[in-house]
Design a protein around this nucleic acid. Structure first.
Lengths: 153, 153
DNA sequence: GGAATATAGTATCAACAGGGTACCATTTCA
DNA sequence: TGAAATGGTACCCTGTTGATACTATATTCC
């Protein structure tokens, strides 16, 4: 559908929250309650982000997650790659071992130009960072404001 | 998966072919043979493009399809919209009557900025035309947008 | 040390979009 | 009238995504 999956949206919500709280460690349960997203699914996403080095985890009681790198270093492209696999506007632009071969690969009349479009799309996604989404000052949501208060106190 | 469907690729192949043959009417069977794509699926795509006014059809023997408008007037966005439905980077950017309501719509901390990203993505898709892909020379030098401007605009 | 908390890893199931096929009606040319 | 070609629709199969469940492991606090 050419749409970001819900997992990617959850990944954005989590990383943006963690960007707002600085280096504080936040557990999955708190973020789940704060934003009304289901805990098990959020946990799956957080695990994945940890595996990809986007978050760092602290195990045990009082544990949780924090950003592993600065929010400006986390592009939308990286987030998508961690959760959904690398973005590919056309599959033939980045063939992967387990997807069935394209039958018209060599003779495809649009592959060349579409690979260029794919690269432009990739640059587009690389140019958007968690910092851009998290610190958009035009956003008027209450939850983020609450989160900032929590940090401030 | 954030990937164009095969139907959209077929739509691109067909429209690019028709762009190259001018106003000549070409039947589905010929394009199917020429590019090695399955006839029934290609026919479904051509029917859809005709319904959306992108192609014009000529029925009966010796019939077929031709572009309804110039290739510069057919953007990638229009093609996708015809075949897959309107591109929506996030569903909440363009809610449709038959998709289930987002439970965190009002409180979503990333909806605002992501809708802006969605709009920029839309502009990106509107900026690429069948002429660009068919004649592969017009867009390759374009600069990629700096995404920070998207959220900051 | 033990209970409580929280992540790590994996496996499984259900829902949905996309891929693909089939059928019949309609139109036009020869 | 027959062949060629599109018009429209309905259907099923498969792969991706969404969602849940379970056990193991690590850490804090009493």
């Amino acid at each position: 559908m050419l749409t970001l999956t819900r997992k990617t949206v959850y990944a954005l919500i989590a990383t943006c929250h963690l960007a707002n709280v600085g280096q504080k460690v936040v557990c999955a349960r708190d973020m789940s309650k704060l934003y009304g997203v289901r805990l098990p699914l959020l946990m799956n996403v957080l695990k994945t982000l940890n595996q990809h080095g986007i978050l760092r985890s602290v195990r045990g009681a009082r544990g949780g997650y924090a950003l592993a790198v600065g929010p400006k270093q986390i592009s939308l492209s990286k987030l998508i790659e961690a959760v959904e696999g690398p973005p590919r506007l056309v599959k033939c632009a980045l063939p992967q071992p387990d997807d069935p071969p394209c039958k018209i690969f060599e003779d495809c009349p649009v592959r060349g130009p579409m690979v260029k479009v794919h690269r432009m799309f990739g640059s587009f996604l690389k140019g958007i960072t968690v910092a851009d989404v998290a610190f958009d000052n035009r956003y008027s949501g209450r939850k983020t404001a609450d989160a900032r208060k929590i940090v401030a106190q």
